[in-house]
Nucleic acid binder design. Structure first.
Lengths: 215, 215, 215, 215
DNA sequence: CATGAATGAGGCTTCATTCAT
DNA sequence: GATGAATGAAGCCTCATTCAT
């Protein structure tokens, strides 16, 4: 890996990117297999075909490597959820007769992300123990719950007790939805199967929720 | 070889139990926070207010400590699930028009266990990685999936592709159901709220599943 | 184990001796099985039917317990060897035509000790690693070598080189003799077999030595 | 993955070998002093002038370090012993009038090994307790005993009791012979002296054994 | 006297991280 | 830029010894 400059354009950059990418790829595989805290930097270096110490020229430390791998997906995920929520805020209320329509919009964003970044999401949601992303899952569930709250408590004009119950319900369903997604991601790698099962999961939830709302 | 005094007041006894309990309590907290394999015996000892070596007077090793904490709940849980399944086998088929009736029976057994052993169940199901209980969650989901398969594939007389899809669906829903229960347990300690939310969760699932079956 | 005094004669003494003896007996077995440094005080206490801490009322520490067990045999052994040597000094020279006669005297002392204190001797010679008796084996070999030197270098009136060679020979044979005894002790517990094999060992050595002296 | 420079002078190589050798040397000394199971990795590291963890860059674990130290000698030793035995089997019977001739052949092989690998052999034979080499000494003594049995029980046509006695005698003498060799090795480093003493040892044994056979 | 719970130092081993080369 | 040897703290666990009871 020799330094060569051609026309003032450093080829190094390309080489460095190569190395960095192979580290990231090796890290992805290692984190997926063993989780954050049980992943071995040495193993990552071996898989990437470089030496242990060299990782630290590209990443400050294990946490930084994890961050660089997971952060983009995390940001996208949060952004999508916020967009969904904002969308919902603008439309003020969901069409409770057909929430499936609404949720189907979710597919075009989140499910895409699921299909694209399957592994990163699994790591983020289920294998980030010991890292600074450990509490993220809860945050995402909070966010999902905010969305569902709008379904159950459209006006917020209810009595306290009923409201708390619906608040709890929204949180619980948000959690199960996200866990459901995690399970799908864990058990299936094929994009189409993932899409299909997410579709089913949402269908079941929507039907259930609609039925629930009619009470 | 416990010191027991005639008048029923043995100080030693209390002290030893105290220590054992504080270890168990500290371990519960540590396992809950970091999972089995990332839990630190040193940290458990510190939390319990004793030295590391002293833990080993009460438990043979880390696995044994985990076992003593988790095993009772595990046994009860498996037993309940088997009873439920046997019950279903005897009745041959579920009343698809009213599966809620059936599922409501589940409440009287499993939900009780959930209410009693909140944290232990969460550890068993989500944080036992690296221990001998690691495969338990999958086994339980298999068991739950078997039950759901009876709902979706009553005769088993379907084309292969459709069957695989329904098989996947059963597994996914089984997983989300169990995760849903875990989430409820994590977020709520009040028995009545837990019961109510499990009820809701089942209602949603049943409604969703019924709606799904009509397709 | 209650303190009872009868006619001013403390029964305690007897009881204490009982305990002390059971410790010694248990220790003998443990040291024999695992050697000094791998022996476990806890195991000794268990075998003796008492508690760990109680050992320390009878023996200052592990080394002291070992000492009290091994020292008598050690002293006797050394004493016998010195007696043998003194005997040899007095008689000025061994009857080289019949050294077996002389060595047979050894039987009546040392072999008796071997037969009586089989286990202690094995521990002293082969299993004292880590204790203060570790170098004893070499000392005993030195002593035995002194005796053999008198056989090979009766007058000490030899040329330097030949003398050094005979000195080495004496040491080597002393060492092998003692090791031979250890091996016999390790492999046989039956007193008669031990006596017989020691006899054979000496016969072989004497024949060999006599033959050697004729050169 | 060793750095090697074209001009044959790689500083790294030297350094690494230096460290590995100093570990091996420190380990040799520690094992010799305390035996396998009581040897301390920390002490070995200290003696080698490195940190404890660094040993594990060179050796997988304690057993591996021991193995790398002892295995070569073990293999050679076993091979020689088998060759000797095969040789004896081919010649069907030993010339009992002159077994010294036969044993002298042994010198040209085993004694060489003894002279080369003094300490390693002593560790292998006397200080391997707790390692996978623990049973080796007994195996070697068995092998040596087999050879001696051919001397004492040529036809195997004896009465039971006499045979058992001779069997015991063969084992005892085999053990003492091997121990004798160990002792010589421990006390002398000079090759010529070792050769001479082994010669003496064998002479004594042969004379003794011949004399014994005449009974 | 006896108990046995507790300590503390040490056992082997792993691993993220640093640094001289 | 890259190397990989070295560090040091932490992992689980054992055990002789002490001490409050």
């Amino acid at each position: 890996m020799k330094k060569t400059k051609v026309n003032g354009c450093s080829l190094m950059q390309y080489l460095k990117d190569d190395v960095k990418n192979s580290i990231l790829q090796a890290a992805l595989s290692e984190f997926k297999r063993h989780g954050y805290s049980n992943a071995s930097m040495r193993q990552i270096a071996n898989s990437a075909g470089i030496t242990t110490g060299n990782i630290y020229r590209y990443f400050k430390n294990k946490e930084d490597l994890f961050h660089e791998l997971i952060h983009p997906v995390y940001e996208k995920f949060v952004q999508y959820m916020i967009e969904i929520k904002d969308d919902l805020d603008d439309n003020c209320a969901i069409d409770t007769n057909n929430p499936l329509d609404y949720l189907r919009k979710v597919e075009s964003t989140i499910v895409e992300l699921f299909k694209e970044s399957n592994v990163e999401l699994r790591i983020l949601l289920n294998l980030s123990n010991g890292s600074s992303y450990e509490p993220v899952k809860q945050e995402l569930i909070q966010l999902a719950a905010l969305i569902l709250e709008q379904v159950f408590i459209p006006g917020g004009d209810q009595q306290d007790k009923a409201m708390i119950e619906k608040y709890n319900l929204a949180h619980m369903l948000a959690g199960t939805l996200i866990e459901g997604a995690c399970i799908i991601l864990r058990d299936h790698e094929d994009g189409e199967t993932v899409r299909q099962l997410v579709d089913e999961l949402m269908r079941v939830y929507c039907a259930g929720i609609i039925s629930r709302l009619k009470i």
